[in-house]
Amino acid sequence: MSVLGSGIFKGMAVTLKNFVGSYFDKERLTTNEYAWQANDKLPERAGDYPKEEAEQLSDTTTVTQYSRNFPMLLHDAGEPMDTVRCVACQICERECPPQCIYIEKSTEKKERSGNKAQFYPATFDIDVSVCMSCQICVEVCPFDAIVMNSQFELSTPSRFGELLLRRDDLLKSNDYYYKIHPEEASARDKRIADEKAAKEAKKKAAEAAKKKAAEAKSKSEAEAKAKEEAEAASKPTEPSDTPPAESTATPSTEPPATPTTEPEKEGSAE
């Protein structure tokens, strides 16, 4: 039997420990001094925030690698627009809860970093005054093209305009990503490599299987036909056997109906 209100006192003890501890235990306070001050380089006026990658590094590497702020677009090594990963599929635009992404697809396809020709974003704007840093765009992107930046020095003197980040402001190299979020970046690249390897392995297996399947096809088709005929022959007797049970069984007949459509879908996708 616990003492009434002991939970509250326990909680208060925890917060008290944190409160007092933060004055004596330097380990607890993980906050860094303000980044600009650390580099002794205060901006002359609001709006002088860096847009270039090299400049942003002085900013973003001062915060912990797990921090995130607003999205950025990844490109691989080389000219940004030649290696940009985004294919302007507009999934993120649709998923973004506050609708702060605006994408315009390019008119023609273009080949990038050895992949097959795809569209690329002619315009890609993110209104960071609206973005709520939810990272949903990152989650939904099938091409690992959009990730979170951790740049925080974004104040501008104007209310509109400068907070609208354009495509060229958003483009950041994969190297930069490695520098600001080392763990996340390597995990992501490993996953991409794994997926690629798995895909290739699957492709090979599929090719091998195709040959086999072609041989087996004629055989199995004949078998299936025979089976169907046999089933059709046996079916008419079933309902007449159990007429009273049918009314109770009606709800249970529905679920089996759906699986029959699924194999079809899979078949059509392949």
Binding site: N18, F19, S22, L29, T31, Y34
Partner: peptide, 14 residues
Amino acid sequence: KALARIQNRIGPNK
């Protein structure tokens, strides 16, 4: 200040 310290932050100090 107190809330910040409870959450192991520094709080307004500038």
